[in-house]
Structures are given as C-alpha cells and as structure tokens.
Simulated assay, not measured.
Amino acid sequence: MIQSFLPIVNFSNQTLILATMPGVTSLEKQEYYANPSNHF
C-alpha cells in the first residue's frame, strides 16, 4: 500500500489544501515533483 507524506498541521491554520497522491519517485525521495520527467 502506498502512503503519502505526513500532513503539515498548525492549529491556527484556516485553509485546507487537497491534492493528488505524489508519484512513487517523489515518495521515495520524500520531495514533491522529484520525478525528472516533471518539466517546469
């Protein structure tokens, strides 16, 4: 089973951001958009 990054929680937060599951490469490197095929 694939698990995502841990949430960043601060009790003064007022915004919730939802996103898709990071890819396997990003999860292995513990970094969003870590896959070299992501072109920005």
Rank of each mutant, 00 (worst) to 15 (best):
N10T: 10
M21F: 15
N35D: 11
A34K: 00
K29T: 05
E28F: 10
N38L: 03
T25R: 04
H39W: 05
E31A: 13
E31Y: 05
N13F: 09
P7K: 10
T20P: 04
Q3L: 11
V24K: 13
Y33K: 01
L16S: 12
Q14K: 15
S37V: 02
Y32M: 08
P22Q: 06
P7G: 09
A19V: 10
E31V: 09
I8H: 12
Q14E: 15
K29Y: 09
L6Y: 10
E31W: 05
Q14I: 14
L6D: 11
F40D: 08
Q3W: 04
I2P: 02
L18A: 15
L27D: 01
I8M: 08
F11P: 12
F5H: 11
N10I: 01
S12R: 11
A19P: 05
G23R: 07
I17M: 12
Y32A: 10
Y33Q: 03
Q3V: 14
T15P: 02
V9C: 11
L18E: 14
F40L: 03
M21H: 09
L27S: 00
A19E: 12
M1S: 07
L18T: 15
H39M: 03
M1D: 04
E31S: 10
V9F: 07
T25H: 05
L16F: 10
P7L: 01
S37C: 02
L16E: 08
L6N: 07
V24Y: 05
S4N: 14
G23F: 00
Y33N: 03
Q3K: 10
Y32I: 05
Q14Y: 08
S26N: 07
M21L: 15
N10C: 10
L18M: 13
E28N: 13
S26C: 14
I2V: 14
E28A: 13
G23S: 06
T20F: 09
Q3R: 09
T20I: 02
T20W: 02
H39Q: 11
P36Y: 03
T20A: 12
Q30G: 02
M1N: 01
F11W: 02
I2M: 09
F11Q: 15
L27M: 13
P36F: 01
P22D: 05
F5Q: 01
A34E: 00
N13D: 11
N13I: 02
L27R: 13
F40H: 00
S4D: 06
H39E: 03
S12Y: 05
E28H: 10
F5W: 00
L18Y: 09
L6Q: 11
N13H: 12
Y33M: 10
E28S: 13
Y33P: 00
F5D: 02
L18Q: 15
Y33V: 00
S37R: 03
I17D: 07
S4F: 06
F40S: 01
F5N: 04
P36W: 08
F40P: 03
G23C: 15
L16M: 08
L18H: 15
S37T: 03
E31P: 05
I2D: 08
F40Y: 08
P7E: 08
S12A: 13
E31K: 14
N13T: 05
T25K: 01
Y33H: 05
G23D: 15
L16P: 01
Q14F: 14
A34L: 00
Q14C: 10
A19C: 11
P22W: 06
Q30N: 11
A34R: 02
M21A: 07
G23L: 02
F11N: 12
P7F: 00
Q14R: 14
N10R: 07
P7Y: 00
S12V: 03
N13K: 06
S4R: 08
M21P: 02
M21V: 08
